[in-house]
Design a protein around this nucleic acid. Structure first.
Lengths: 137, 137
DNA sequence: CCTGTATTTAACCCGAAGGTTATTTAACCT
DNA sequence: AGGTTAAATAACCTTCGGGTTAAATACAGG
């Protein structure tokens, strides 16, 4: 497995048992035994899953007598969400519209700048990367 | 690997090469060779990555002469986003606040109902699952 | 038809993921 | 100290993921 943080997090989430554990933890901190209870799986297996989640920064664990209560640690999830954000316009209508608005604002700003400093050339943002040009059937 | 759709998608995203490919595709549809160009990796390896992405529903491919242009397919990403949504309150302040507001609205609604039908007991929503009760040191 | 270009498939290697059982550590309670 | 409960570790097995090279497929075009 790739070792960068985001890959580690995605890999940790790529298992239904681990996602179910996280869903359970969304209801609140709990012990390993209680986390294991819904699954038809040995305790060491659960222990491994928890280690994976912890290593991915998705949960944190403390000690309380002989229990090691687990809770959700939000930072990694937040990072996943932020990565996803870069693609949100592909499915979220309102984000797509926001894209358009930003384009418009940018164009408008450029016009304003050009009007304010008629001597110097306005700083042009390089346009969207338009690779793959030559290709018609 | 687990074979449910969400696991497949997360697994596909758990690789920096594949995420980079998606990022490139966010700029627009392109060919396999151009997708491969930034990576120090054989072409069959890229081909496999694309197959994984396609199987996860993250990209779609068409044919155009001898090229097989790829583009982003948003549905799987959207599903990931929706799954994440269930946890957003853990890191998003405004969502946490929304949680509070919803709680308040629910309580208010119950009061109203009770006032309107003083004869029958108001339909109580069962409270948040409060597992793990007995545990004090 | 033959050659070049784009891409996939086949066959293989290696290490890591996810599961098992058996054993060990840690902490509580008499 | 001894016994019980909670959890982790060790050792092991099998499957799968990501990479390789070499060969096959699909199409365009002189």
């Amino acid at each position: 497995m790739a070792s960068d943080p985001l890959s580690t997090t995605f890999a940790a989430l790529a298992d239904p048992t681990r996602r179910a554990i996280l869903s359970r933890l969304a209801l609140g901190e709990t012990s390993v035994l209680e986390l294991a209870q819904p699954f038809d799986m040995s305790l060491p297996a659960i222990s491994k899953h928890l280690k994976v989640l912890e290593h991915a920064g998705l949960i944190s664990r403390s000690r309380e007598a002989q229990w090691r209560p687990c809770r959700i640690a939000p930072v990694s999830l937040k990072e996943v969400d932020q990565w996803l954000g870069g693609f949100r316009r592909f499915w979220d209508q309102s984000f797509a519209r926001l894209d358009g608005v930003l384009e418009e604002m940018k164009a408008h700003e450029i016009k304003i700048r050009e009007r304010l400093k008629p001597s110097g050339p306005a700083k042009r943002k390089s346009g969207v990367n338009k690779a793959r040009a030559k290709k018609e059937k």
